[in-house]
Amino acid sequence: MRILVIEDDAGIADGLRTTLQQRGYAVDVCGDVASAWNALRTERFDAILLDLGLPDADGGVLLQRLRSAPGSAGSALPDPATPVLIVTARDQVQQRIAGLDMGADDYLAKPFDIDELDARLRALLRRAAGRAAPTIRHAGIEMDPAARTVRLQGQPVDMSPREFSVLRVLLEARGRVLSRQQIEEHLYSWDAAIESNAVEVHIHHLRRKLGSASIMTMRGVGYFMPQEPA
């Protein structure tokens, strides 16, 4: 899952980047509203962590601009439905209410516990995918994003961090075909080195571990996990 951190404090931004990357997220960082808006116009993110006290404008301006954008998921950018977690030093009740009423999905005051931030982020991603349960279950596969574990027919399956991330993207989109580029957009930040066949290699390994029919190929289009029969 790919996260955009909008934070002007370099120490906090670097700490969030490092910690979230260790937890399996791809992370990009912007330090002001202008660069963040440019990023949202050109890249798709699974969620946004938004500070309000930014140097060129209030973060709320960006939030309102995003929510009023004409795009939609799978079409034009920016995507107004992108989940937003405000992370700010403004901790008064009325400030929290205002942030939520501007369109934020959640609000967390600084200083915060990183485990709580991660849990809130997982909840945002879960709701965005239309899931209520914390685990993802599909065709005998059970994934726990919090524990970062995968089971097949009840038996644990060892996976590399990147294999886990690819599988999560495909599970969240099950029934829909994703191109290689779309998968890469969820997995890699701007500064990541991407080998041309990386996605194909990870999918090959996943098929070997989960079964050849677990991930299907639509030739010339991309990859998908078939929907289970009703």
Rank of each mutant, 00 (worst) to 15 (best):
E142L: 12
F164S: 00
R148N: 01
R65H: 10
T135H: 07
G99M: 02
A73V: 07
A129W: 00
D32P: 05
M143S: 03
G74H: 08
V201K: 11
L125I: 12
A230R: 14
A119C: 06
P111C: 07
Y25I: 04
E228Q: 10
Q182Y: 04
D51L: 04
A57Q: 09
P145H: 08
Q21R: 15
A98Q: 10
V150P: 05
L77V: 05
D113N: 15
G154A: 04
L206T: 03
T18Q: 13
G71E: 00
Q21M: 14
L152A: 02
A147H: 08
Y188D: 07
I3E: 07
R122C: 03
D113H: 11
V150T: 05
S72K: 15
I183Q: 00
A173Y: 00
L178H: 02
L66A: 11
P134S: 11
H204M: 14
P80Q: 01
A10W: 08
R208D: 11
Y188H: 13
H138W: 13
A10Y: 09
G31F: 04
S35R: 12
G74E: 08
S160P: 08
P83R: 02
R2T: 06
F224N: 02
I136S: 01
Q153R: 12
G15C: 02
N197Y: 07
R131S: 07
P111Y: 04
P83K: 06
H204L: 10
I141G: 00
P134L: 10
L66H: 01
L121A: 08
